[in-house]
């Protein structure tokens, strides 16, 4: 693995209106790193949006006085996003309903974690100065 460097480090108020700006910044960084355009326009944009909305609405309970930090680190092998909120975290390994099962297709919620896991190569959650969701995309 080569040297790692920080490609992005921003902190936003816990408000969903800030998501689009962060996604735009992250997508631009992704393209600058010569990651395939499709991975930037689909995988990064959607998975990071899910992680951010989850952090704001669930992690921080939509509390306007809280914050979410987004940090991206890149090296020769991967692009890694850490999304940190002030909440207690959640159990990534819990038996979440599969939204693609016929009986769940009409669910209005419950696709966020599924999309993160399908669009990223690795999704992790741990505590480190807050609740961190780590999204890893390998550069191939």
């Amino acid at each position: 693995m080569g040297d790692s460097r920080v490609a992005l480090d921003v902190e936003i108020p816990s408000d969903v209106r800030y998501i689009e700006g962060v996604i735009e910044l992250a997508t631009r960084k992704c393209r600058e790193l010569s990651i395939p355009p499709r991975k930037c326009s689909l995988n990064v944009r959607v998975a990071l949006t899910e992680a951010l909305s989850n952090a704001i609405l669930r992690g921080n309970g939509d509390a306007a006085d809280k914050h979410v930090r987004v940090r991206a680190v890149v090296n020769d092998d991967s692009l890694v996003f850490d999304v940190t909120d002030e909440g207690p975290g959640f159990d990534l390994s819990a038996d979440w309903p599969d939204p693609t099962k016929p009986e769940n297709l009409m669910m209005e919620d419950g696709r966020g974690l599924f999309l993160m896991q399908r669009l990223m190569d690795r999704v992790e959650r741990f505590q480190s100065d807050g609740n961190v969701v780590r999204l890893t995309l390998f550069r191939e």
Partner: peptide
């Protein structure tokens, strides 16, 4: 449209 997230998909289902 640029992209849709799970909330957007949920609204379409609703």
């Amino acid at each position: 449209t640029g992209y849709i997230d799970s909330s957007g998909l949920g609204v379409l289902v609703s």
